[in-house]
Computed example of a mutant assay.
Amino acid sequence: MSVRRITALTAAGLLAAALPLAAATGAQARPTADATVSVLHGVPGATVDVYANGKALLTDFKPGTLTDPLKLPEGEYDLKVTAAGAGAGGAAVIQANDVAVPGGANVTVVAHLNAAGKPVLTPFVNDTSKLAAGKARLTVRHTAAAPAVDVRAGGKPVFEGLTNPKEVKADLPAGTVKADVVLAGTSTVAIGPADVNLKEGTNTIVYAWGSASGKNLKLAVQSISGLHGNPSGVPGGTGGQAAQQDGGMPVWIGLLAGALVVGAGVTVVRARS
């Protein structure tokens, strides 16, 4: 089944499966805003089906796939991931109930491994606030069963111990930044110095997924554009399939370095067929 077909089914399924919104006041229901939602499959070696409120949304969903953005009613969703073909009553590979989808937000739900290697679901709300002229935003999310890292600028740590499932972000001058990354608490350089090109008016979101012990760490990238000026509605974006760097540590760490050169903080996507 094509990614576009999967996305169409997802939209139809979630719209049908949405829980009731807030109760009506008098004879009229309270107006609500849709959310923009995408899903990243970051569990290695598992082709799965995804259910929301008991209805099939995604079938034969393969690792490394990042879905197209969907417009969904705000509310809470019971999400269940099963082995492909197991059916709604099949054993859950991952399950999370009452996952909040806030109205008007831009959200990425990530199925991934936690630090101990157990499959989990983590929803992230993407920052789509406007950027000043000449600025770009970089967000990095650690969703891999992999060690913590420290980020250095000029050989000195500026952020220490980024762990799963934390994220960092920074608004940077558009252009190229340099930094390096070491394994947490050591001087062992994992990657760098790295050059990172950030485009004006975009939020580039980088996910590390997979497992260090399984030697299958990979990269997924999401780009949200239209953040300069005053765009109408919730911005969309483009992204890509997972990518992997040989040598154990993933490419994303180089991007992380750029985000943290100037400071640290705290997911729309078109998957390639």
Rank of each mutant, 00 (worst) to 15 (best):
T128K: 05
R152W: 07
I94L: 15
A100M: 04
L162N: 07
F124L: 12
A116M: 12
A132T: 10
K130W: 02
N114A: 11
G161I: 01
R152T: 13
A105E: 12
A144G: 09
S129W: 06
G90M: 12
L131C: 10
G104H: 11
P147F: 13
V99E: 04
P119D: 02
A91K: 14
A133D: 06
T143Q: 06
N126K: 02
S129Y: 02
Q95L: 05
G154K: 02
V101Y: 04
A132G: 14
T143C: 00
L162P: 01
R152G: 00
E160Y: 00
V151H: 02
P157I: 03
L162V: 06
V93M: 13
L113E: 04
L113H: 10
A136I: 04
A133L: 05
A100Q: 12
R152A: 10
N97A: 12
E160D: 00
S129P: 01
G134K: 03
V120A: 09
G117L: 04
Q95M: 10
K156A: 14
A146I: 09
P119Q: 09
A148P: 08
D150E: 07
N114G: 10
L113N: 07
V158E: 03
P123M: 05
A88R: 10
V107I: 15
A132V: 09
T139H: 07
A146Q: 07
T128P: 06
A145R: 12
N126W: 00
A148E: 12
D98L: 12
I94E: 04
V110K: 04
A111P: 11
N126E: 11
V125S: 11
A105P: 10
K130H: 09
N126D: 13
I94S: 06
L113T: 03
K156M: 00
G89T: 00
A92D: 05
K130I: 08
V110G: 07
A116V: 14
A111H: 11
E160M: 12
G104M: 12
A145N: 15
R137F: 11
T139D: 08
T128E: 00
A116T: 15
V107K: 13
G90D: 04
A88C: 10
L113A: 09
V110D: 01
V107N: 14
T108G: 15
A88V: 11
A146W: 13
